[in-house]
Nucleic acid binder design. Structure first.
Lengths: 252, 252
DNA sequence: AAGCGTATTCGACATTGTCGAACGCAACTC
DNA sequence: GAGTTGCGTTCGACAATGTCGAATACGCTT
């Protein structure tokens, strides 16, 4: 692990959480001398990864990170497959559809198909949700015991709403059920008033590479039986296109 | 400039251009020993900035970059203003609307309003276009002589189509006209069959912070007079909301 | 089974980043 | 308007750190 690179990424991470920060704030949060942080910041700035507000001198993320993000999406085979099947799933379920991948303890949304009712909706590509509080995250974690252990070892689970599962054992119990059905649900655990239903996506090597699912108003729970089937089918179809031999894969 | 951080970002940049690369390819392109690149790569990997394909061992960008990109968009005041006015501009012009910012020699799209005809269109947020070959880029460069000098000093302009302006003097001449009208046009200079029209956006300090414009099929050139006015108005409205005292600002 | 082309590990060396201190600058305060 | 405080930034000596060549391990082909 190269120290300065690690520090640079940690700077980006802090900036990600706090939007705009002064050099001294940044240094305080990282527990590093300001001059050290300054050197790294200037390097990041030269590449457009961060930029400094002319008026306040505070630092924030720069346009170069956006460029990188877009290229990541283009390289993902999963995404191109998800686009096709999301459309169908949205039509069949009448709900917005999200596809996501796992990074450490969070789900990153890589595709978002708006509800097919024609209303204006914010694109959600790139947003992150704690894995333990989302249907997508649970669908993936159920088949990734190592990632789950790592997540639980890291510290207490963050509570998002009163419904968030923050007990490790309770989460494990839920995930056992998820693995049995290849279907994960979430009711107001991340956002009040919102529920989710998701299924895991596997690739040719039989490992979970993502999950696809629907988002619906909590009051519309439970969805029709056909909807459960539609989510599982979307996940299975994408998995097959990625070369997965079976769906679902048996965990462990 | 911290060497290892600089190298890390260069690695990300190469990965951005080439999608997936083996360690030796990557090392060869950067003219660095493989072991040096490997150390940096492993650090980036630990943070999810890059990931390694299990089968081929090749490296590619990871989900963490996508997360960063999304947060960058959220911090941009310009973007939230652009969303409102893009909608109006799309309605008035009947065209797709793009808003972009400048990084070095490229325009990064930070908002994309699809053509209001209801057809399915790929979201274009995050894509990059060489500044000299786009209406958005010209609109900004006309008011940023320093950036223009830097761009021209860096080397020959990249040709995208037969229409791309690759002569520095010719570009300067065009930009003088752009600065006079506060309106930049582009006809098939980046993509054959596509034309653009854009106007610069200024902030409270009177500097260019972005540009907004429309994309239309080259065969539909020239747009109606009202459309020219609509583009300028959108740029002026956003500039005013950002605190700009005047629009356009006089260059130099 | 042998050989090649990979990625990866290791360790010695000196290059390089680090950190404290000093500087410059602007915005307040009295 | 002089003094003061709180910034960001620059500088340079030191040694911690990243670098690179060589050695190892791995997987694929022949």
């Amino acid at each position: 692990m190269i120290q300065s690179v690690d520090r640079a990424i940690r700077i980006l991470g802090v900036l990600q959480g706090a939007r705009r920060l002064s050099l001294s704030d940044l240094a305080a949060r990282l527990e590093l001398p300001p001059s050290t942080v300054h050197g790294i910041l200037k390097t990041l700035q030269a590449h457009g990864m961060v930029l400094q507000d002319r008026d306040s001198n505070r630092y924030q993320l720069g346009p170069a990170v956006l460029k990188l993000g877009n290229v990541y999406l283009d390289t993902l085979e999963l995404r191109s497959r998800a686009v096709t099947w999301s459309e169908e799933l949205a039509r069949r379920s009448g709900c917005a559809v999200r596809t996501g991948v796992l990074t450490h303890d969070e789900v990153v949304i890589i595709h978002h198909e708006p509800r097919p009712d024609g209303s204006r909706q914010m694109p959600e590509v790139g947003i992150v949700i704690p894995a333990h509080a989302s249907a997508l995250g649970k669908a993936m974690l159920a088949y990734l015991p190592d990632q789950l252990d790592e997540l639980l070892a890291k510290g207490p689970l963050r509570s998002m709403t009163s419904e968030t599962v923050i007990d490790g054992d309770e989460l494990r119990k839920q995930l056992d059920e998820v693995a049995r059905d290849a279907l994960a649900a979430e009711r107001e655990e991340a956002v009040l008033g919102e529920a989710g239903l998701a299924a895991p996506i596997f690739d040719a090597s039989g490992l979970v590479v993502g999950a696809i699912g629907i988002v619906l108003p909590a009051v519309d729970w439970a969805p029709a039986d056909a909807t459960f089937g539609a989510v599982r089918e979307a996940a299975r179809n994408i998995s097959r296109e990625l070369g997965a031999a079976h769906w679902p894969i048996q965990p462990r």
